[in-house]
């Protein structure tokens, strides 16, 4: 909501700024910047573990992603076994349009993960940079129901909103990520960009029923799939800080945020995805 207000505050200003040449290219001499390891790893039960290790770069440097080739990655399983993840970047994913994600390192065997399992990650390069992280798989939270309702407008303007309901567990501090994808799951839409993608927390609704809705945006015949991930707070905070940092660039009302994850010695996030899905066709 605060984001909306800041955007609203910006509207009249942007309207004025858009009159004439009130926006100009300038040279900004930025001080030198030391790059950091960026680590992003989302484990999923039944899938081969992989992760992306890149480095941050000076803001105005060329656009190519920096993928270091001197990084050794080790995943420690709940039973203490250490699994090396080999450097094997799938560069093709950088230009992929089917939803395949980029990874720099990948394991060999599908992962076995159960709620409560603790995983550790160790990332080290030859320059002495060393990043570590720990994550715990959370129990999935079931979706109770999905529903929709059409407005009463003419057929050409007929749209539906979509509701997703689930009950938050009793303990405080649960966080969620709820995505809605539109289209046939059999055709790979669940790998592509979602229609909506929201992070939620139970600060105001601990132990209660969540009913999360959209505006009137879906058409008759649409197939909607709701995916609800139960996430650690670290992942929630990582997403919020990424959002805040992005929105501060270009918003004079924004307060720049540091990036908060759970990777020590670098920047990034390490998590086990624990999700459930439910699909509905809008008739």
């Amino acid at each position: 909501m605060t984001r909306f207000l800041k955007a609203a505050a910006l509207l009249p200003l942007l309207a004025l700024a858009s009159c004439g040449s009130l926006q100009n290219n300038i040279d900004v001499p930025l001080p030198s910047y030391s790059s950091e390891l960026i680590v992003e790893c989302y484990l999923e039960a039944g899938k081969v573990p992989s992760l992306a290790v890149t480095t941050s770069v000076p803001y105005l440097s060329p656009v190519l992603p920096q993928v270091p080739n001197d990084v050794t990655v080790t995943l420690t399983l709940p039973n203490g076994a250490q699994v090396p993840l080999a450097f094997s970047p799938n560069y093709a994913a950088l230009t992929d349009t089917t939803g395949v994600k980029f990874h720099s390192h990948i394991g060999r065997d599908p992962l076995v993960a159960r709620p409560g399992d603790v995983f550790k990650l160790d990332v080290v390069d030859t320059k002495g940079r060393h990043a570590t992280s720990t994550t715990t798989m959370l129990a999935p939270v079931p979706i109770d129901s999905v529903s929709y309702k059409f407005n009463d407008k003419s057929p050409t303007e007929r749209r539906a909103y979509f509701l997703t309901s689930f009950r938050d567990p009793a303990p405080l501090d649960d966080c969620y990520r709820l995505q809605l994808h539109k289209g046939d799951p059999a055709r790979g839409v669940l790998l592509k960009a979602p229609e909506t993608d929201n992070s939620l927390e139970d600060r105001l609704l601990n132990g209660q029923q969540f009913v999360f809705g959209t505006s009137y945006r879906f058409y008759p015949g649409d197939t909607i799939t709701a995916t609800l991930y139960h996430t650690e707070r670290a992942m929630y905070r990582f997403r919020q800080s990424v959002r805040d940092a992005r929105s501060a660039n270009g918003n004079p009302f924004g307060q720049p945020s540091a990036i908060y994850g759970n990777v020590q010695g670098g920047v990034g996030i390490f998590a086990v995805l624990s999700g459930v899905r439910m699909t509905k066709i809008l008739r």
């Binding site: 989302y42 770069v57 980029f102 990874h103 790998l191 991930y229 920047v267």
Partner: peptide
């Protein structure tokens, strides 16, 4: 500085 993220599948 800046960096890019891949985010979760989907």
């Amino acid at each position: 500085g800046r960096f890019g993220i891949q985010d979760i599948p989907g």
